[in-house]
Design a protein around this nucleic acid. Sequence first.
DNA 1: TGTACATCAGTGAACGCGCGTTCACTGATGTAC
DNA 2: TGTACATCAGTGAACGCGCGTTCACTGATGTAC
Lengths: 183, 183
Amino acid sequence: MGRAEQKAESRERIVEAAARLFRARGFRETSVDDLMGEAGLTRGAFYAHFEDKVALLDAALRESFAEARRGMFERGLEGLRGAAWIDRARARYLATRHLRELGEGCAAAIFAREVPRVPEARATYTAEVTRIVDAMAARLDGPGARAEAWRLLSQWAGALMLARAVDDPRVAREVLAAVRDAG
Amino acid sequence: MGRAEQKAESRERIVEAAARLFRARGFRETSVDDLMGEAGLTRGAFYAHFEDKVALLDAALRESFAEARRGMFERGLEGLRGAAWIDRARARYLATRHLRELGEGCAAAIFAREVPRVPEARATYTAEVTRIVDAMAARLDGPGARAEAWRLLSQWAGALMLARAVDDPRVAREVLAAVRDAG
DNA sequence: TGTACATCAGTGAACGCGCGTTCACTGATGTAC
DNA sequence: TGTACATCAGTGAACGCGCGTTCACTGATGTAC
């Protein structure tokens, strides 16, 4: 493996660690040491890859949103449209599993509260959320498709956050079930 | 003013500052100095009022949820039930004004991402969210009232967070309008 | 009503710690001849 | 193919700063007589 490839792989491991840890624990709550340790490196190497910690948040946002798009539109949901797509995508989004895997949650939901505290990240977040909503609207029909996409994303993201915040697993499952069972 | 009353008033000012600043900037992002300055006191006095910063978060949660309940069920919404209540409460929750006043946002939405990082606060959050949903369900009818309450709260809270996270005011207004205009 | 003492809300300097960032250095990889 | 040198990804100690928390002290309020 050449030096350039090795460096590219290191960078990728750092971004993946960040996409996971920033979502699981938060941006401020994750230290550069934590991130580099998770990527199998030490602290000093960080600044050969990124200008600063905020630049990594930007990369982690893009990575996490790409993952969110795969979950919502690929992996079995490729051809679906309209109500059929809504049913399948919603069931996946609001699966109990989405509660437990803290490092893998929907980027739109999880970074919503992170991004206002890191102004440099807001433009990327905005572009990525808009992209998700555009893609949702493209699966729906009619002139109100975009508004319907915002309604769906709001409801799903809200339910995920409430369910994750709550202490009691029965309450968490109740929220998810309520939104899963009806539009 | 007696000493006891003075102390009680100081405590109240600290809690009010916390309810505002924790929502506007976040728990970790707000220092004890910021809080005490906002309350017109200095740092050292803090520990005569609270065991530690986490204890203040607990008090700020209760204060913020009480405010949320007033917004959703009082101040003109007293007698309303069913669709009439939903229309009025939703319009208020999703008003553009709710975007700007960062220190006054709905506690259920805003603390949802704060609370998982401060384990001691989760029990209070859970109790308070449940209390809001119970109150919403009591305004609705039928056996599915509680599920409907979770769906409404999820959607409203999700829309508020997305709208606040986003950089572009036009996008923010688009989210709010989409959810405001239809259930 | 006045005096002496006790109480206690609040002050502000100081402490310890974690964290983002810097930088001189190491050693493995790549290049020139 | 081998040798000498250059490059550069990564290391880890050190720095500076912000923040939560502590604590000796102050001065105004309250109490006893």
